[in-house]
């Protein structure tokens, strides 16, 4: 009888598969009954991940929306190719892949649904456009499985944000299979990082970290008490705290609107200022 090769499920950070800097590894049983080792992310891993997201932000946000859409579609292609290797029912994999296809199409359209040209009563062209919020830490609902992971990923990426998904350890096998698809999708390193770990341990770190722009929690990923505490702590840094119901319905413009900042630009354009229409 052949001795099986045991796999260590690494985390995905900056386009690389890494172990936790803490060296913490937990044995767990895979879906096929074999024994695997799972990395448990430390607080420092989270800080490294968001730091990496921050330095990757300009690169990803600076891509054209067309390019972002192509890369998301490429993610769907990569998932499709690996569907049979994913440790879930094929129907669930298909649902998740179709979700990515759906969101890929948003990348170059969301800005048109959320931006406006504002008819100000003065000699200015005035427009409001949506800009990425920045670095997002997202806690997908484990019950949503792969669909939750892709929904959280797309919520972040469609608008040009970068972010880190925090996935509980018991979803690690799925998460790692998913990151392998991410890795081959042409997504630049650091656009999405995926850490496996304990939410109770990592949420408080995220709450008070001032270089995170938003925290997203989906469905039952955290308890109401944890959420209230997260809001309390996040208040210190005026954190955008966003809670979605779950992944069953795809994010639409109202959800994406929560993950972007509306920026209004006034451009001087002409000489006449109508009476009573202007500030000064």
């Amino acid at each position: 009888m052949r001795l099986a090769v045991q796999k260590t499920l690494k985390m995905y950070l900056g386009g690389k598969f890494i172990r936790s800097e803490s060296g913490r590894v937990l044995p767990t049983t895979a879906s096929d009954g074999t024994l695997m080792n799972v990395c448990r992310a430390s607080r420092k891993d989270l800080r490294d991940a968001v730091g990496n997201n921050r330095s990757s932000l300009g690169g990803w946000a600076g891509r054209t929306a067309y390019n972002r859409g192509q890369i998301l579609y490429r993610l769907a292609e990569m998932l499709e190719g690996r569907a049979s290797a994913l440790p879930i029912e094929p129907a669930l994999a298909e649902q998740a892949i179709d979700r990515v296809v759906h969101h890929a199409g948003w990348a170059d359209k969301i800005s048109a649904t959320l931006s406006t040209l504002n008819p100000v009563a003065s000699a200015y062209v005035n427009y409001s456009m949506v800009r990425p919020m920045g670095v997002v830490v997202s806690f997908p609902d484990p019950r949503d499985g792969l669909l939750g992971l892709v929904e959280a990923t797309c919520q972040i990426l469609v608008m040009g944000n970068t972010g880190t998904l925090i996935v509980p350890l018991d979803l690690a096998e799925l998460a790692v299979a998913y990151t392998e698809a991410l890795h081959t999708s042409d997504l630049p390193g650091g656009a999405i990082n995926v850490l496996t770990g304990d939410i109770v341990e990592l949420l408080p770190v995220a709450n008070i970290h001032d270089d995170i722009d938003a925290i997203v929690v989906s469905g039952g990923a955290v308890s109401d008490e944890q959420w209230a505490e997260a809001q309390r702590e996040g208040a210190q840094v005026l954190r955008r705290m966003i809670r979605f119901a779950g992944a069953s319905v795809p994010s639409g413009p109202d959800a994406f609107a929560k993950l972007c900042e509306v920026k209004t630009v006034w451009m001087s354009a002409g000489a006449e200022i109508p009476a009573g229409g202007s500030a000064y």
């Binding site: 000699a123 200015y124 001087s268 002409g270 000489a271 006449e272 202007s278 000064y280």
Partner: peptide, 12 residues
């Protein structure tokens, strides 16, 4: 010259 701001100034 920015005409819009000239108008603001003379408006004042």
């Amino acid at each position: 010259v920015d005409a819009a701001t000239v108008a603001v100034r003379t408006g004042r």
